[in-house]
């Protein structure tokens, strides 16, 4: 059974504007899937539907065998097991770094303060930011903040991770420090769904690539096939634009 199943999902913002059109795909356990496409193609919306941050009007989404689309009461519990990293980090600016990492652990998972803190420090060490534990998010650089955000997701012991354009708000010199952490994760066998424009990352670690345009999944192929010989015109055009330099 796949970790994430997306079946015939459609979403409208209003009757005139359909953001997702009948999208179907799946992510196997341990797989790394990259979602790409031009801006406004619905890729960010799609990834947010996986943990029901965006509701859908049609179709079903299953995560670890549980139907997310009909779930109500257990949604927080499920979300706590799905790690999510946002484009703009979304660390809580009023909490210290270590407090950011402990909030979910203590409130949702019911861990003790000490256990949560120990776990937090372990993850901070992993992303190389132990020294900043007592600072506030606003005192860190973008790259550091995004690494903290990844650590915040990891402390919850997630079964899979969602990345929504994790590097597109970063200055170029900070992109790699974040990608390095992600590559590491992928190597450890984490199930990942990543919306990104970083084709280098896709080539290096992705198993599959999904290409979206105008709310549709236009292409859903193995990495080699997608970069070697994309079938659709739209994907070809997109690749030629993005890889021409």
């Amino acid at each position: 059974m796949p970790m994430i199943t997306i079946e015939k999902v459609s979403k409208w913002y209003n009757p005139q504007f359909q953001v997702l059109k009948n999208c179907t795909t799946a992510v196997e356990k341990g797989e790394v899937v990259v979602v790409c496409g031009p801006s406004g193609s619905g890729k960010s919306t799609l990834i947010k539907t996986v943990n029901a941050l965006e509701p859908v009007q049609a179709g079903t989404i299953m995560v670890d065998g549980l139907n997310v689309t009909t779930m109500k009461k257990d949604l927080p519990k499920l979300r706590s097991r799905v790690g999510m990293v946002f484009q703009h980090f979304e660390l809580f600016p009023h909490l210290k770094i270590v407090e950011n990492l402990c909030l979910g652990q203590t409130i949702v998972l019911g861990r003790s303060e000490d256990a949560a803190k120990a776990k937090a420090m372990k993850m901070l060490e992993r992303v190389g930011l132990t020294a900043h534990a007592q600072k506030y998010p606003g005192q860190l650089s973008g790259g550091q903040q995004q690494r903290v955000a990844i650590a915040r997701a990891l402390v919850m012991d997630p079964i899979c991770m969602l990345f929504d354009e994790p590097t597109s708000a970063l200055d170029p010199e900070m992109i790699n420090e974040v990608l390095d952490v992600m590559v590491e994760l992928a190597k450890e066998g984490m199930t990942m769904m990543v919306v990104t424009h970083e084709m280098g990352f896709a080539k290096k670690v992705a198993n599959r690539v999904i290409f979206m345009d105008a709310g549709e999944i236009v292409e859903d192929a193995q990495k080699e096939d997608f970069f070697g010989h994309p079938r659709s015109d739209r994907a070809q055009q997109f690749l030629s634009k993005i890889l021409s330099h």
């Binding site: 941050l53 927080p76 790690g83 946002f86 409130i107 949702v108 915040r152």
Partner: peptide
């Protein structure tokens, strides 16, 4: 408070009240 903050809260599993 930006919408992203609310989403980030939900994403780590908090409910509305939390």
């Amino acid at each position: 408070v930006p919408r992203g903050q609310v989403m980030a809260g939900y994403a780590i599993g908090l409910n509305y009240r939390e």
